[in-house]
Amino acid sequence: MNVLVIDYGMGNLPSVKRAFEECGADVLISGDQGDISKASKLVLPGVGSYAQAMDNIKKSGWFDALQTAVREKSMPLLGICLGMQLLAEEGEEHGHSQGLGFISGNIKKIPSNENIRVPHVGWNEITAKKSDPLLTSIEDGTDFYFVHSYYFNAANENDVLARTPYGAAFPSIVRHGNVWGTQFHPEKSSLPGFQLIRNFLSISQNA
């Protein structure tokens, strides 16, 4: 098994598993931190509210387990949608809550107006800000599927791999060290999503 999809009680886990399998990965969905040692890569999915997610992650022991896996063992981690937002230091959905703190920044609500309906639902394009193995063979202007009301307000522009325009251009892919996050759902983005998943699977431990 090379990919562990973390089950903390929230998220579209079967969809994530199926897409990664379709891309050639051997996938285990697990809520048991002991399974980290069997994996070479971690995926943190997530659909739902920030506060509830962090509550689940702390109570289930994943908070400490992820800190160890990412910071000490340098395991590559991909956060998807809410899972990406959890990588930040702080979220503000349903009150302030502490995040995993892997990538500097906080989570803010998308400001809505007459032309910007929230949630941001649908296919929207990304524009790369840096080159990265995660973006191999993915051109600027490629559409991915988004569904979210909050965005990752990155503290360091250096951590932003790509942006997507919706009102302002928010960070749609972030990376710091061995931790990546996509605001969109690669597992629901058809072929472009598969390309990104394959790129993540190809990243070596020391990329």
Partner: peptide, 12 residues
């Protein structure tokens, strides 16, 4: 509208 680009991957 979305314009699906060509990718190496294919769908079964």
């Amino acid at each position: 509208v979305t314009q699906m680009k060509k990718f190496q991957s294919s769908l079964a």
